[in-house]
Amino acid sequence: MSSDKKPLPFIYQFASGAIAGVSEILVMYPLDVVKTRVQLQVGGGSAGSEAYTGMLDCFSKIIKNEGVGTLYRGISAPILMEAPKRATKFAANDEWGKFYRNLFGIEKMNQQLSILTGATAGATEAFVVVPFELVKIRVQDRASAHLYKGPLDCALKIIRNEGILSMYNGLEATLWRHIFWNAGYFGVIFKTRQLIPKSESSTQQTINDLIAGSIGGTAGTIVNTPFDVVKSRIQNTIKVEGVTPKYNWAFPSVFTVYREEGFGALYKGFMPKVLRLGPGGGILLVVFTACMDFFRTLQ
């Protein structure tokens, strides 16, 4: 993440990213369940027991009608996903950073390169996460959750009923989601670290990383939420042979949601998403940096 520190081999970057990812998901997962429920709801919602008027209403109705455990429904898929996902994010960001610095003959990272490497790392990460995201969304959705005994059963039924390639349903939308989020996240982290005072202690370093990561996570969330909304809808659509899905490709789906439900619908689930990925982005950066520093002491 920082060109001022001693670089470490890929395996240490991968391990640090994996530990950071699992730490973040254990703390923030209930917000992801709420975000997905709100995004999948077509229309404005109502006061009925089957609809949500917002984040807090969704939280309370899930707990009241389905139990607290539902807030962790489907977590095994994200847990299995988070290690390779976040590991790929940070390791790919560092490796692509080296590639672009060599390609352009630039000794140190700048904000433009941080945005470019973040976007490329996001595209790399997307290929890893799509099958896990697909299973997570199917299990989280109240309308389809009863069809599956768990994430593994969900994956097997998708493959049997829709074909193995359906596990990559929504890849294109996921690519855009991760490209925009990572470009915003790493680009803003780089700029924020330039603006805040340099740390004089490990405690101040942790605070600085928490601030930079939270701001970066918030920026990434602002720019990528419309693609996250349509990705959820695309992946929750069961493929039927001979039928063109309503939500199929990212940009046409964005226009469909905008035309039918208005601009605000493109930011459905934004509040739980930003509450998760703002502070969550801070947790990711803090844990990743701490792990990398620990591995440096072993070197």
Score class of each variant (00 low, 15 high):
Ala91Ser: 15
Gln112Met: 07
Tyr72Phe: 15
Gln111Lys: 13
Glu95His: 12
Asp141Gly: 12
Ile63Gln: 08
Ile115Trp: 05
Gly170Trp: 11
Gly97Thr: 10
Leu165Glu: 13
Phe59Ser: 04
Arg86Ala: 01
Phe59Thr: 02
Val129Gly: 03
Val128Ala: 06
Tyr168Asp: 13
Lys61Tyr: 07
Ala155Met: 09
Cys58Val: 03
Glu125Gln: 14
Ser144Lys: 10
Glu95Pro: 03
Glu133Cys: 09
Asp141Asn: 15
Cys58Met: 03
Arg160Ser: 13
Val68Asp: 07
Glu95Trp: 07
Val68Gln: 05
Leu152Met: 12
Tyr100Gly: 02
Asn161Pro: 06
Arg142Val: 10
Phe90His: 08
Ala126Leu: 08
Ile62Pro: 01
Glu82Gly: 03
Arg101Ile: 01
Ala143Gly: 09
Trp96Asn: 02
Leu156Arg: 12
Lys61Gln: 03
Gln111Leu: 02
Leu103Thr: 12
Arg160Gln: 13
Thr117Trp: 04
Leu152Ser: 05
Asp94Ile: 08
Phe127Ser: 11
Asn110Ser: 05
Leu147Lys: 14
Phe104Met: 07
Lys85Ala: 14
Val129Lys: 01
Asn93Val: 02
Ala145Pro: 02
Glu107Gln: 14
Gly150Cys: 08
Ala83Pro: 02
Gly67Met: 13
Glu107Tyr: 04
Leu134Phe: 06
Leu171Asn: 04
Ile164Pro: 08
Gly122Trp: 02
Leu165Trp: 03
